[in-house]
Amino acid sequence: MLPTLPLGPFIFPTAGLVIIFGAWFCLWVIEKAALRLQLDAQATYTLAVVGLFAGFLGARLAFVALHWPAYQQNLIGILWPLTSGYAPLGGLATGIVAAFFYGRARQLPFAATLDALTPGLILGLMVISLADFLGGPGYGTLTAVPWGLSQYGVRRHPVQLYELLAGALTLLVWWRLVRGRRYDGQLFLTAVAVYSATRLFLDAFRDNTWIITNGYHGWQLVAFAALLLSLLLLARHDGNQ
């Protein structure tokens, strides 16, 4: 929709700008959520920063490791340009491990900290959807619905906007559940269940999604597994109460 944003003589990639400002906003929200849950806001905020930066570095280093022959002759290329060349799964793993060990070192309560991180994580997913909508490669399936977006002669489901609504619904559920929560981790598990259920439904409307064998949508299977696991854990916790 808007892949670049001209500001004076400069042209910026919109998706990159959205992700940078979105990351800052997510960190701010995590700090506020920690305060609301009466946790150590400073430590929770730092944990999120550690996870974010470790994820960024991990994604880059994983990409470099996967393509070492190309970097071997050009070591400066590891640092420049930083605008492309990341392995998302490597970043995700590194970010989670770094945040986990930082939390252990600071003796943060695991489940309660996850509750505080939840709105930031959901917002992060919303930021990715917004960046994808404005300047990313994603697009919805063909449709005739009146709210479909017309682009190059065809009308498509605005699937990233649906994902934004799914994130907003999850945040609303988190917000409504804060006062009535009965155990640590309930907010996180509930948010995972709600968001997974919505993404399981919505991925059917994404045209260039991850397809695995036999035509199944890979992200639907991931969302389905996350939904069932979160429901089982919620049921087990409720049984223990």
């Binding site: 009535g180 259920a197 399981l200 439904f201 991925d203 059917a204 397809i211 036999n214 035509g215 199944y216 949508h217 639907q220 299977l221 389905f224 939904l227 069932l228 429901l231 089982l232 919620l234 049921a235 409720d238 049984g239």
Partner: peptide
């Protein structure tokens, strides 16, 4: 909120059935 184990079992069964059906319907030809 769900109170009984029975309600949770029903919810999980419904989620499993609906989720599986939707995944099958979304399968790419």
């Amino acid at each position: 909120m769900l109170r009984t184990r029975f309600e949770w079992v029903i919810l999980i069964i419904v989620a499993t059935l609906l989720g599986s059906a939707w995944i099958m319907m979304s399968q790419e030809p």
